[in-house]
């Protein structure tokens, strides 16, 4: 028996909106730790890892570890039927082949049940080792989204370079080139407006903008995005989910051959 009651149902709605175009189907895993997902896009270039910790739920019952295969566009469609202020409860029976999403309006005058068929999904769970990154950039998530959107009007790939001068996002395309440099500015009025760059050594990597733009669909989940770069690893673009966990997008770099 699984029963997870999330007071801030909008978080789950936002999570699905941020991943449904990247990943078609995925197993949601539930254990005492929380509600989680790890999935790759169909071309295995990007990976998303989601964790919503059990403590973040108002009620969290998960009698045994369970993995529920879902088609994400279908799940997103159902969650779209929940109001932004609704409480969402996810319910499933052990060994069952359906999951139920229950939506309660804030004043309890409307209660809706949406039952969705589960599917069997063969998916490999990859081990993601703890790693030291050469550079970690924290910046306003809206600023990062803006940069990715702007650059993708010029080119298909972005070179992200971190030096002691700051972080530079560059692209080039048929019509020309673009460079956007963001310098560290830790002394702003609001901490969420700060750009903070932790650099152990300079790093420069090339990524497909199509994926970066897809990741920025998670912008409504967090004011700050953290971009971790290392020349030997996929970049990690992380959005913390208030008090609950995170959504992390991993993207393999493009390598010059």
């Amino acid at each position: 028996m699984l029963e997870l009651r999330l007071l801030q149902g909008s978080l789950l709605k936002k999570v699905l909106e941020s991943i449904k175009d990247l990943v078609t189907e995925a197993n949601f895993d539930c254990s005492a730790t929380g509600f989680s997902l790890q999935a790759m896009d169909s071309s295995h270039v990007a990976l998303v890892a989601l964790l919503l910790r059990s403590e973040g739920f108002e009620h969290f019952r998960c009698d045994r570890n369970i993995s529920m295969g879902m088609k994400l566009v279908n799940m997103a469609m159902m969650l779209k039927c929940a109001g932004n202020d609704d409480i969402i409860t996810i319910k499933a029976d052990d060994g069952g082949d359906t999951v139920t999403f229950m939506f309660e309006s804030p004043n309890q005058d409307k209660i809706a049940d949406f039952e969705m068929k589960l599917m069997n999904i063969d998916s490999e769970h990859l081990g993601i080792p703890e790693a030291e990154y050469q550079a970690i950039v924290r910046m306003p998530s809206s600023e990062f989204a803006r940069i990715c959107k702007d650059l993708s009007t010029i080119g298909d790939t972005v070179i992200i370079s971190v030096t002691k001068e700051g972080v530079k996002f560059s692209t080039k395309g048929d019509i020309g080139t673009a460079n956007i440099v963001c310098r560290q500015n830790a002394t702003v009025d609001k901490p969420e407006d700060a750009i903070i760059i932790e650099m152990k050594e300079p790093v420069s990597l090339t990524f497909a903008l199509r994926y970066m733009n897809s990741f920025t669909k998670a912008t409504p989940l967090a004011n700050i995005v953290t971009i971790s770069l290392s020349s030997e690893l996929p970049v990690v673009v992380e959005y913390k989910i208030a008090e609950m966990g995170y959504i992390r997008f991993y993207l393999a770099p493009k390598i010059e051959e």
């Binding site: 990859l126 090339t206 991993y250 393999a252």
Partner: peptide, 14 residues
């Protein structure tokens, strides 16, 4: 030419 790598080049199955 930039060649796109895959995630599985970096992370291996558990």
């Amino acid at each position: 030419v930039n060649q796109q790598r895959q995630i599985t080049c970096f992370f291996t199955p558990n």
